[in-house]
């Protein structure tokens, strides 16, 4: 029996882009290992934190939407806890009918979003070069 979950985690802002990507990939690998079916990925990017966390003022937000058995969560959170590059994480379960409908909606929205960001990304690179 697989439930619908959403996990948000914040990566340290002091890392380089490659290191951030490596951390995100690592979490993805853990998800694959614990028999989770990744539905969508939402990158919120570098944001200002509302309050300092481990003396960091900013953080890199990533959200994963996935279906997984309940036992997978303990293993995933254990991995996130031991990862020094992750400063905060939260898992939300979508259980009742209304929440599940919203879950599907958010997956659709998250799948649309990367296209928009990919359009923006080259523009940013160009401006950086200029």
């Amino acid at each position: 029996m697989k439930n619908a979950y959403e996990t948000l985690f914040i990566v340290k802002p002091t890392l380089t882009e490659e290191e951030i990507n490596a951390t995100v990939e690592k979490v993805k690998e853990v998800l694959a290992k614990v028999d989770a079916e990744l539905r969508a990925e939402l990158t919120m990017g570098m944001r200002r934190l509302a309050y300092p966390v481990q003396k960091h003022e900013r953080g890199y937000y990533t959200v994963f939407y996935y279906n997984a058995p309940g036992s997978a969560i303990a293993e995933l959170e254990r991995n996130l806890k031991y990862d020094e590059n992750v400063i905060k994480f939260m898992t939300v379960k979508y259980s009742n009918k209304r929440e599940l409908a919203q879950f599907e909606k958010q997956i659709a929205a998250a799948k649309k979003a990367p296209e928009a960001t990919s359009e923006e990304a080259p523009a940013n690179e160009e401006s950086a070069e200029a």
């Binding site: 944001r47 200002r48 900013r58 937000y61």
Partner: peptide
Amino acid sequence: QVALVPYIVDRKRVIENPFELIK
């Protein structure tokens, strides 16, 4: 919990329009 909204705002922890501060 995930630092999108502050728990408290007082004289020590003043935040100027944090909703707009994305970067």
